[in-house]
Design a protein around this nucleic acid. Structure first.
Lengths: 206, 206
DNA sequence: GTCTATAAAATGATAGAC
DNA sequence: GTCTATCATTTTATAGAC
């Protein structure tokens, strides 16, 4: 039984419309960012009026929060569905690869890196913070294991590894390469993974 | 003879006030970003009225452009003053170290990474674009030399190296570490340089 | 629940006195 | 060149009809 079949037809339509609103929100956030995205933009992209939009989401902050939550849920689902026999470093690499691919295909705005203002807004959203903390906890454990096994540099503080890892998912180099280089998406992903884990240089032992 | 002594006292005061305006603009950009920075913010931070501010800079775009130009000029000055006997990889490392230190000490907003909107605005500023292209040309040559000498990974496209290098100057991991870790600024710089050139992993040969 | 119309507030930019 | 006062516009959010 699908998740939708539990709901009445009316509620199904409602859910579908909410998803359409979140799709439009994601696309506009990616193109314009939070500050420049207006509720008029979203309403007209979906083809509804602004008061109707406010029936679904009580504020701009709420709307963006829900869009970000859907994003985090996608990442958590991907992680949950990975082969449990993979090494921690392989899981981390696969997660980053997934995030880069989603982003290159036009899905992901990754707002938290954008500005302190947006970050604070999201941090006030308890539902969002809960999802983030849970995912962060899983990734922390993977980083610790990979450091112990020698796949990640054990001389670096785990904070440095984790924050740098997150930053790679929203690295502006991706957009620059997509716009100004002749590399295709798969080549960009391959090189970004290489740069993340092996760096720009030819490593000397330390 | 200093640069200021060529000017009348009145013009000196004018220049000093412009510098104070640019200082305030830089600080506000760092804290709030372009979209949320208002001309009222800048005027009251400097202690002048908004119309006075507009006598110095004809628009918000112009003001931010000049602040960014001053930033690029600082980088170019630092590069020009480096020891000419340094290896290209040492110069690149020193430049990144300088940029990270400036940023950690509260100076640098590094807008170009922020949003497509801001990037487009700056790209319309010919004075700014000129400075950026000149600096970019110098860094391109350093990257090519470092790849040739084997200090930077020659198997990576130079585009990938250059864009990734730029991205490290505005890596959000820096702010996360400054806010949420117990590392001091110098430790953060050391680790960020390590991550940039050597990556997160323990490199296997390729 | 959807719409038209509008309130309320913020903000980029300027007029005009001094 | 600096100020007070103000315009014009944008934008979040809502009232009220249907």
């Amino acid at each position: 039984m699908s998740i939708l079949s539990k709901l009445s037809f009316k509620d199904q339509a409602f859910k579908l419309r909410e998803n359409a609103i979140l799709d439009a929100t994601t696309a506009i956030l990616r193109d314009k960012g939070f500050d420049l995205m207006t509720m008029d933009d979203v309403a007209s992209a979906v083809g509804i009026s602004k008061p109707s939009l406010y029936k679904h989401f009580k504020s701009k902050e709420d709307l963006v929060g829900e869009a970000m939550i859907r994003l985090i849920d996608g990442a958590a689902d991907f992680l949950a569905q990975l082969d449990k026999n993979l090494q921690p470093i392989e899981i981390l690499s696969a997660m980053l690869e997934w995030a880069l691919r989603v982003r290159l295909e036009g899905g992901m705005p990754f707002l938290p890196s954008t500005s302190a203002h947006v970050r604070e807004m999201l941090m006030r959203n308890l539902k969002y913070v809960g999802r983030v903390l849970k995912l962060n906890h899983q990734l922390e454990k993977l980083v610790a294991k990979a450091q112990k096994s020698g796949d990640l540099d054990a001389s670096l503080p785990s904070d440095v590894i984790l924050f740098s890892y997150y930053s790679r998912t929203c690295d502006p180099a991706v957009e620059f390469l997509q716009r100004y280089s002749k590399l295709d998406n798969e080549q960009i992903i391959k090189h970004m993974l290489q740069v993340c884990f092996a760096g720009l240089g030819t490593k000397q032992p330390h």
